[in-house]
């Protein structure tokens, strides 16, 4: 590795992170607008034309807000928790291939890397909830820990089918294996359904947003956080959503492939944003699950079905040989 390579990697990293930060700013405007219109409202309208500058106003507000630290909190952990979350979520971007031959690090264990970082991201929620020394935060953290370890199993198992069909865990290879429109969503429809629902649970989104259920736990693990630290949690959540959507697109919807009249990266981002819209759409539609229902669903339905999916995929693969 020479100096040129290192400079190129740095440029790629900074570029992706910068674009990503803009994405986080504007995707929440997208969410507010989409959900508002689904509820026959209009959403932010004041700052700029139809509120397009609202995210900038929000970030300025959050940046200058007072950073409140609860008296009896565990201060070092209280400080570290949001940083763990945002680092874990943003580093997952490194392996996502935006177009042919472009990813910051073309890892051979790409899927495992993303799963590993998403499990590290759970620590942010657990530790943040614990360190706040508040009952709401603590319950949010506990719920999140149990939820994330349960659904990570289902999620990993649902991706095993994809790994079997493509014979690789490298995300670029998985996309190449789906060339000419042979998207894995057709043979792996069961795996896709499980993956998508587990991804909803993994990113703490509605209908599985038990760790931050407003009606019961105020704001869950983030109750005691304010200002920039809260914004970091927020960023981690939206980063997680982007990564999960990108993983779904790469594993089941052919990644950057699409008809030639648009560049591949546009196809990729369009698919990812369709998924993100689906997240918002579901948030506007479904009520929240009860906690025991959530755990029951994860352990009693998704894990057995995911295992059955693996067995079926293996059988079909052998039969077709």
């Amino acid at each position: 590795m020479n100096a040129n390579d290192i400079v190129w990697i740095l440029i790629k990293t900074i570029g992706v992170v910068a674009v990503f930060l803009i994405h986080v700013m504007f995707v929440q405007l997208f969410e507010r607008k989409a959900i508002a219109h689904m509820q026959s409202r209009m959403g932010p309208m004041r700052v700029g034309w139809h509120g397009v500058l609202q995210p900038i106003a929000d970030s300025i507000k959050l940046f200058f807000k007072e950073d409140i630290i609860p008296t009896n909190s565990d201060k070092p952990i209280f400080f570290i928790a949001p940083i763990i979350g945002v680092i874990a979520a943003v580093s997952s971007l490194a392996v996502i291939p935006l177009w042919e031959g472009f990813s910051i690090a073309n890892l051979n264990v790409g899927i495992l890397y993303i799963l590993a970082l998403s499990s590290v991201g759970a620590y942010a929620v657990i530790l943040g909830g614990w360190a706040s020394n508040s009952k709401y935060s603590f319950l949010g953290g506990l719920r999140s820990s149990a939820q994330v370890i349960s659904y990570e199993i289902a999620m990993g198992l649902s991706l095993v089918g994809v790994m079997m069909m493509s014979g690789s865990t490298n995300l670029s290879d998985i996309v190449s294996a789906q060339a000419e429109g042979r998207w894995f969503v057709v043979p792996q429809i069961m795996g896709f359904a499980i993956f998508f629902i587990a991804a909803l649970a993994e990113t703490n989104r509605v209908p599985f947003d038990l760790p931050e259920a407003e009606t019961e736990l105020v704001s869950g693990f983030a109750t005691e956080y304010s200002g920039m630290r809260w914004a970091l949690f927020f960023m981690a959540e939206y980063a997680g959503m982007f990564v999960m959507s990108a993983l779904a697109v790469v594993c089941f919807f052919g990644g950057w492939s699409g008809p030639g009249f648009l560049p591949p990266v546009i196809w990729f981002l369009m698919k990812v944003y369709a998924f993100i819209f689906l997240y918002f759409w579901i948030r506007a539609t479904l009520p929240r699950y009860r906690y025991d229902q959530l755990m029951g669903l994860g352990w009693k339905i998704f894990i057995p079905v995911a295992l059955a999916n693996i067995v079926l995929t293996g059988l079909i693969k052998i039969l077709l040989k």
């Binding site: 264990v109 495992l112 890397y113 799963l115 590993a116 499990s119 759970a122 614990w130 506990l142 820990s145």
Partner: peptide, 26 residues
């Protein structure tokens, strides 16, 4: 050993340590 590195995080950090944390908090 890329595979073991990933497994180290997924199993140790993602499962075993969360279990510890869960028990400590409980």
């Amino acid at each position: 050993a890329e595979f073991l590195a990933a497994i180290q995080i997924i199993v140790y950090a993602g499962a075993i340590l969360v279990l510890f944390l869960f028990v400590i908090m409980m």
